[in-house]
Computed example of a mutant assay.
Amino acid sequence: MFRSLALKMAENAAKRLKTDNGVVAIGTHNGHFHADEALAVYMLRQHIPSYANAKLVRTRDPKLLEQCDIVVDVGGEYEPARHRYDHHQRSFNTTFPERATKLSSAGLVYMHFGRQIIARRLGQPEDGEQVGLVWNKIYLSFIEALDAHDNGISAYDPAGIAAAGLEKRFSDGGFTLGAMVGRLNPNWNDPIPEDPVEAQAAEDKRFELASHRIGEEFDRDLDYFTTAWLPAREVVAEAFAARTQYDPEGRVMVLKKQSAPWKDHLYNLEEQAPESGKPLYVLYPEKPTPDAKWRIQCVPVSKDSFQSRKPLPEAWRGFRDEELDGISGISGSVFVHAAGFIGGNKTFEGALAMAQKALL
């Protein structure tokens, strides 16, 4: 039954191709779908003009795939010149530049078309520096997780985890980007329409939903990194260059006007200037107004670490207001977190005094 249904579904796909002369077609496999091809199709249709109105053909029939203008995640071929982007063949070992994770169809499409997507959003040439920064950042923050998921690569080395005797304390629900798409597939015992046209249509409808769902998350990242993260680079670079104004060794960095996403940019700037002093504290106003209170935040040892390079003094931690004034000897105190990674003062001068005293 299932084999005959599959054959009828393939025949139906062939009829769709024959009746859509002149319409660009994107091919991918039918059946159980995954996050990588769902996102690959979305990026092409929503962000690449030549595929904006493309017909989607979901099949495993080589003859039907041959008629498609571009094929992702099926067909056993990786040939960019012919727009074939599969990664399942034994000979495939392509990775994103300077990364070790083998690509999936999402990574392949992003590697070849991502610069175009970002360049169009920024209104800049594809080989521009800012386009390259965002292209690399979105891969690291979003696409690589899909590549790893589809290729069965764990974020942590299983052998290392076992050797350390580490066990999960609770279930996190398994809610990853890949799982988010996977749960949109039909359940094993959901009824399948007997009519092959209806069966394929029902399956394709689910895929379309999954493609738009993962695509929404991609678009949120694209919007964030082009409109918020990238402009913050200039703000952080200015503060990084001026940090010796507040400490001769450059250990205090001040974001003068308002807070901005600073961690990624700070670590990147430090890599470019390895001989200069590394900031230990970052100061910034809580809001962009003259009467704003100021925060002092410790720089973590790494982006995702909870360990600070130099925590605020232990004697200050967990205290507030006048009591903290008396302990620290600095007026205008607001608080210091019990973990010592952040504090606040009513004025910039007070926050700077906290930083300079904490350096001692």
Rank of each mutant, 00 (worst) to 15 (best):
L5G: 10
L7W: 10
N12G: 10
N12A: 14
R16G: 01
K18T: 11
G27V: 00
G31M: 04
H32K: 08
A35R: 00
D36N: 08
L39K: 05
R45F: 01
H47W: 12
I48P: 04
A52W: 03
D61A: 12
L64W: 02
L64T: 01
Q67E: 12
D69Y: 02
I70P: 09
V74W: 05
G75S: 04
Y78F: 14
R84S: 04
H87P: 00
H88N: 11
Q89L: 04
E98S: 14
E98C: 07
K102P: 05
A106S: 13
G107A: 08
M111Y: 12
F113Q: 15
F113K: 14
Q116A: 11
I117H: 08
R121T: 13
Q124V: 00
E126L: 03
E126T: 12
W135D: 10
N136C: 01
Y139K: 04
L140H: 06
L146Q: 07
L146V: 11
D147I: 01
D150L: 02
A155R: 13
G160E: 06
I161Y: 02
A162F: 00
A162M: 02
A163P: 00
L166M: 10
R169N: 11
R169Y: 06
F175S: 12
P191C: 01
P193F: 07
P196F: 09
A199K: 06
E203Q: 15
R206N: 12
A210D: 07
G215D: 08
E216C: 03
Y224G: 00
F225L: 04
W229I: 03
A232T: 02
Q245L: 07
E249K: 15
G250W: 00
G250N: 02
M253G: 02
L255F: 02
P261F: 00
P274I: 00
V282G: 03
L283G: 08
E286V: 10
E286C: 05
P290F: 00
D291F: 05
K293A: 14
W294P: 03
I296R: 08
I296Y: 07
V299G: 09
V301I: 14
F306G: 06
K310Y: 06
P311G: 07
L324E: 04
D325F: 01
I327M: 03
S328N: 06
I330T: 09
F335K: 07
A338D: 11
A339T: 15
G340R: 01
F341S: 08
G344S: 08
G344M: 05
N345C: 03
F348W: 05
F348Y: 12
A351G: 05
K357L: 11
L360H: 15
